[in-house]
Design a protein around this nucleic acid. Structure first.
Lengths: 142, 142
DNA sequence: ATATAATTGAGATTTATTCTCAATTATTCT
DNA sequence: AGAATAATTGAGAATAAATCTCAATTATAT
């Protein structure tokens, strides 16, 4: 939530990997933190190309990848050719409205417990999971 | 399970859409039904290019799409740039071993019920969902 | 059989992303 | 602080999966 904290985490990540802290990387992270809700990489590319210190497409891709590696953002694939990013908070799953495209985040502890139980029954050691429910949100149902 | 049944379903689908039943489409479906477990579109493209009546890459893509539309196969995205297809059976979810790539299919009715309950609490009408659990399978754990 | 409409193959095109490499900039070492 | 070293950047080329184009071929309906 606190942008400064996140920026510091990113700096720490870069240092820990022996990577440089550059204005380009920090500017891109700032723009990411400015986004409301889910965003596409093209949104960031556009913003950065219009900024007072424009940053190239290649650098946006490279920096977004680093921010992702740092665990600060992640993406959800909402269709075969659409990825949207979100700032990483606690783990949650997604409901995606097939009509309006709205993405609802939810977390349900019972679900997590059940998933772990299912994994145990297969002697499978879970690391992480993704669950997406596609359907119609309340508004679009009407 | 019965290949002839599936082929007839595909023919019905094509007819219902006013599409032609062509040897290319039927040969590609046959090759799909020959696959053991999960397969990649490149596997099919390779096989068809080596067949006695070779079929082009474009036609494989077009036919696979039709077979998918007919509800006979579907794909799972196992990583950012890897899709694998499977023959459509009853609904199930997947566990994917991050080490050996093995895909375990599972179905759990409790999970489905819980998902529906969660959707209800958001006034969300679910149509379908995907769930993938990434981790280590029994063998790779050791 | 013929006419009409659909399909095919081959290669061009598209789109998202990554790569290349010379020029620039950050960091490290005195 | 300044030089040396290593990393990063921008611009455009390259890549890869999938789709499109269009003339030639084939399936279907009459």
């Amino acid at each position: 939530m606190d942008a400064e904290l996140i920026k510091n985490r990113f700096k720490d990540f870069l240092r820990s990997k022996g990577k440089n802290i550059t204005p380009e990387r920090m500017d891109i992270l700032s723009e990411v933190l400015n986004q409301k809700g889910h965003f596409k990489i093209e949104d960031i590319i556009l913003k950065m190309s219009e900024a007072k210190n424009p940053i190239s497409r290649a650098t946006v891709y490279r920096s977004i990848k680093k921010i992702e590696e740092a665990g600060l953002i992640k993406y959800i694939r909402i269709s075969n050719d659409e990825k949207v990013y979100e700032i990483q908070t606690e783990h949650h799953d997604h409901m995606i409205c097939e009509k309006c495209g709205n993405i609802i985040e939810f977390h349900n502890e019972e679900l997590e417990i059940l998933q772990n139980a299912i994994c145990r029954s297969f002697a499978f050691t879970p690391h992480h999971h993704t669950m997406k429910i596609f359907g119609l949100c309340e508004k679009c149902k009407k």
